[in-house]
Design a protein around this nucleic acid. Structure first.
Length: 561
RNA sequence: CGGGGCGUGGCGCAGCCCGGUAGCGCGCCUGCUUUGGGAGCAGGAUGCCGGAGGUUCGAAUCCUCUCGCCCCGACCA
């Protein structure tokens, strides 16, 4: 393609609204433009990148036997009503009515639709297993779209769905997807991790996320370099590092006037927060109970929710009523409330509220002074130890680029997607659902591959393989060499962008670096008189002199590796 | 849903407090010169100052309402 014939509106300065590096660069390099909050237009270069990403996705999906289909983006409400998600999902779903006043929505995902299809068409175990996938638009009325194309209200997603007779089949298809995803993200040149994740409202038995490390990521992931444990902090387990005090603490109430929070009391007594018990009075479905975590830890509400179901924080008046003292002085010692304590409190001696206005109790020994159910209910953080091998864990921000879910029968049961087994017995289909965000692959690739001058695309998903840059097209030799090389490259099956603009060298260099095509062939008058052109790596900026006839061959070699 | 910020030529911004002819840089157009890292000179075009009301002789500027966008937190199927 010729630069003069492709629309690449580069910007010298970054628009003020962009914050994330990938957003700034994709705007500046002329890849995308914003239509409205969370709605983006993909310009020609971005379109090329997306096509290359989607090609890789299709190849790997096809390789595991997945079959591409296309489902509507516009859905009738009744199917969503049958699974309960019509009401379970709130404002995040775009809803509308058709001319007949029938309720409709724009699909946020396609479990309902694909399960409806399965319920209509699959009747026998002979029809199973199946994997169906599509690359389709999804709509989510995000409360806060952000970071350019990372979190938008309309986006394309590769979503696939597996249908099996039993758990064993599901497990096979789940692992097939995991392998396909590894191939896809590796081929796209991303650094990524497969981590355990919370199935959330997708429901079901198990889930993993594929995460690309980046400071603009919205998820936090716990990693153990030693044993490989990796999990989203929304469920990650860890063992907070145990601390021991030298001196013996005897059980005593100490005066802590007006000191309520752990930070205040810890500062007042000059004792580290890890020797405190943070006591939270919560109201569950069976009444009030205390949740206890170590002073330097945070309660993980999702973990607690899994243990006890719905709960809420007690109000001020309730605390006074139940414990006879105001928040800030409550503690586990000296009451018979049900207690759920974090495992980090199992050992050691602690200070906690004395359930007495203005006092804390020092010397509380968990096994002697109170009973509790022991669980991991803290939020894993940097410095904690791996719960599997004891190594210090690391915590990193990451972009979610894909996920895989074991759904089980969550959708097949309500939508009556069943098959008859060999015995003529009706059995619900076991399902899995698997997503990839192609735009997030692109954004993550830019986040992970850029420098001060612009984007550095991984070869496989770059909009073009090579950019040919004649520095002065007024020079007949330079111009004709560029044309000859451009043609030769094309004939070798290499996708080339020829900067045929009548522009100064500086502009061409700057634009080329911004756009980020991995190889540049620079044709300058002086070097050409010596019989050479230059081949430059966008990433390393290293330059090699090559005779023009050898260029196509050399680049083909580079692309293979 | 809480908190903060911003809307002025295509882009980045100043002007707003203290009301009085709408400015700067970049980009764009024309000509000449230039050509290895965003050129120089000369000339030129482009603004319902987000929108609606109000105050005033007069509003980009003051007041009220509204719409949009961004950031932090919460949420995220």
């Amino acid at each position: 393609m010729r630069f003069s014939e492709i629309f690449i509106p580069t910007l010298r300065e970054a628009p003020a609204e962009a914050e994330a590096v990938s957003h700034v660069l994709m705007l500046r390099a002329g890849y995308v433009r914003q239509l409205a909050s969370g709605l983006y237009i993909y310009l020609p270069l971005a379109q090329k990148v997306m096509q290359r990403i989607n090609k890789i996705i299709r190849e790997e999906m096809d390789a595991i036997g997945a079959q591409e289909i296309t489902m509507p983006a516009l859905h009738p409400a009744d199917i969503w009503q049958k699974t309960g998600r019509w009401s379970a999902i709130g404002d995040e779903m775009f809803r509308l009515k058709d001319r007949g006043k029938r309720e409709m929505c724009l699909g946020m995902t396609h479990e309902e639709i694909v399960t409806w299809l399965a319920s209509m068409e699959i009747s026998s175990y002979r029809n199973l297993p199946q994997i169906w996938y599509q690359i389709q638009s999804k709509f989510r009325d995000e409360e806060r779209p952000k970071s350019g194309i990372l979190r938008t209200r309309e986006f394309t997603m590769k979503d696939s769905y597996s249908f099996d007779r039993d758990e064993k089949g599901l497990e096979e298809n789940y692992q097939k997807h995991a392998r396909a995803y590894h191939n896809i993200f590796n081929r796209c040149g991303l650094k990524f991790y497969q981590v355990e994740s919370d199935p959330g409202m997708m429901g079901g038995a198990g889930a993993h996320e594929f995460m690309a490390p980046s400071p603009v990521g919205e998820d936090t992931v716990v990693l153990c370099r030693e044993c490989g444990y990796s999990a989203n902090t929304e469920l990650a387990r860890s063992t907070p590092h145990a601390h021991h005090i030298e001196e013996e603490w005897k059980l005593e109430d100490i005066s802590t006037p007006q000191k309520r929070t752990v930070t205040e009391v810890s500062g007042f007594l000059k004792i580290n927060p890890q020797f405190f018990i943070k006591s939270l009075l919560l109201i569950g479905t069976d009444g009030p109970f205390l949740a206890l975590v170590r002073g330097d830890q945070e309660l993980h509400e999702k973990k607690l929710h899994k243990l006890v179901g719905d709960f809420r924080a007690a109000e001020k008046a309730e605390i006074k009523e139940i414990l006879g003292v105001e928040a800030g002085f409550i503690g586990p010692y000296g009451n018979t409330l049900k207690k759920i304590a974090d495992i980090s409190l199992k050992e050691g001696v602690y200070i906690a509220g004395a359930n007495k206005e203005g006092f804390h109790t020092k010397g509380i020994n968990p096994h002697i002074h109170f009973d509790a159910e022991w669980h991991d209910i803290h939020t894993a953080k940097e410095g904690d130890r791996c719960h599997k091998c004891g190594t210090e864990i690391q915590v990193e921000k990451m972009i979610e680029i894909g996920n895989i879910f074991k759904l089980g029968t969550k959708y097949s049961e309500p939508l009556n997607a069943v098959y008859l087994d060999e015995n003529g017995k009706e059995v619900p289909i076991i399902m899995g659902s698997y997503g990839i965000g192609p735009a997030r692959i692109a954004a993550a690739a830019v986040e992970q591959n850029h420098d001060k001058d612009g984007i550095i695309w991984p070869q496989s998903i770059a909009p073009y393989d090579v950019e040919v840059i004649p520095l002065n097209i007024d020079d007949a030799d330079v111009k004709s060499t560029a044309e000859i090389l451009y043609t030769a490259l094309k004939e070798s099956g290499i996708e080339a962008l020829l900067d045929d603009r009548d522009a100064r060298p500086g502009i061409k260099f700057k634009d080329a670096d911004l756009i980020g095509i991995p190889w540049q062939v620079i044709i300058g008058k002086k070097t050409l008189q010596e019989g050479f052109v230059e081949l430059k790596s966008r990433r390393t900026k290293e330059t090699e002199k090559i005779a023009p006839p050898d260029v196509a061959e050399k680049i083909r070699e580079l692309l293979v590796n």
